[in-house]
């Protein structure tokens, strides 16, 4: 033990140092988690039990999980611990293997949970995605049965996303499951506000939000990127960015760099990303159309105006519709 103390001192860290830090850190952030909890919406405070959630990952990149984990207002820790009972989530849960599987099975048996699906489901051959030795397709079907509603997060779970274009032919939840309310929250990855806002809406009102033809909540997906784009004036004036090095054209329209804003419905220009820090178009990159069912095939090539989506935009422009 003495040896350990010596080693610790060598590194300049004592147990006291380590513990002391905590208090100063709390000051830095102001609110403690618990105080925050007290201020959350009444509807959820009153709930006798937190709604159970099963979060499945199929042909995914975990980007939607990471996006969700990036929520600061409210902090995602408060959502995970205070608002939801996150029973199964491969990337976040403490347990693994059979233990993890047993929690999953118990929750499914119990029923009444919200099912979140991240990633697509291979439709050409089940073996492209096995979890616990079982086809992901079977797991989604099984977990859907006793779910109250299903949230398909991200482009992949909503419409197949990029995997749809591959030989595994990824499909969205709606292509597989019927007879259950399904809410699609596309974009690649899901916007954390869209996900948490939808969950809070359901918990607070007991109802699903109003959906569009593609099962996307209208509150987030009813206006085009183009309609709210601050570069739109340049589109009208025909000022298209050619050279990223030129400060004079750095805010020009990105249509000729492949922007699909006019064909894409999401509130990115208003809501923006990463706590309002930025979004694709404001970093000089084109909108790729990731909120649309045609993503990715219709949007490719991404960086020129030669994609199917770009041709549609040109046709609309010619006929004076945009």
């Amino acid at each position: 033990m003495e040896r350990l103390e010596r080693d610790l001192e060598f590194y300049g860290v004592s147990r006291r140092d380590f513990l002391k830090y905590c208090a100063s850190f709390a000051v830095l952030f102001g609110l403690s988690e618990l105080e925050f909890t007290r201020r959350l919406a009444h509807a959820v405070e009153k709930a006798e039990r937190k709604p159970p959630v099963i979060w499945l990952e199929g042909q995914d990149c975990a980007g939607c999980t990471v996006s969700f984990a990036g929520l600061l207002y409210p902090p995602v820790g408060a959502i995970i611990l205070d608002k939801l009972s996150l029973r199964y989530h491969e990337t976040l849960m403490a347990s693994a293997g059979e233990l993890a599987e047993s929690v999953y099975h118990e929750t499914v048996k119990e029923g009444g949970y919200v099912l979140v699906v991240e990633g697509s489901i291979p439709s050409s051959d089940d073996r492209f995605c096995l979890v616990g030795g079982r086809p992901f397709r079977e797991i989604v079907l099984e977990a859907s049965k006793n779910a109250t509603c299903i949230l398909a997060v991200g482009a992949c779970a909503s419409f197949g996303g990029i995997p749809k274009a591959t030989v595994s032919k990824g499909m969205g939840v709606k292509d597989l499951v019927s007879g259950k309310p399904i809410i699609n929250l596309p974009t690649c990855p899901v916007h954390p506000d869209h996900l948490v806002g939808t969950i809070l809406y359901i918990l607070t009102t007991g109802k699903l939000p109003e959906l569009d033809d593609f099962n996307r909540p209208k509150m987030y997906y009813s206006q085009s990127i183009h309609d709210n784009c601050r570069r739109r004036g340049h589109f009208e004036a025909g000022n298209f960015l050619q050279d990223w090095n030129d400060p004079a054209q750095k805010d020009y329209c990105l249509f000729e760099k492949g922007c699909k804003g006019p064909m894409t419905y999401a509130d990115c220009p208003i809501r923006r990303w990463n706590s309002g820090t930025n979004f694709c178009i404001d970093c000089g990159a084109p909108c790729v159309g990731c909120a649309e069912p045609g993503f990715y095939d219709e949007m490719s090539p991404i960086y020129t105006a030669e994609s199917e989506a770009s041709r549609k935009i040109l046709a609309l422009k010619k006929s004076g519709l945009i």
Partner: peptide
């Protein structure tokens, strides 16, 4: 719990030029 906030903030930092995270655009 603090780390959850700190890595969210680190990602916001990257988004200053990356456009957004996960998956930068720039």
């Amino acid at each position: 719990l603090d780390a959850l906030k700190m890595h969210a903030k680190a990602r916001n930092m990257g988004a200053i030029w990356g456009g957004r995270t996960p998956h930068y655009q720039n």
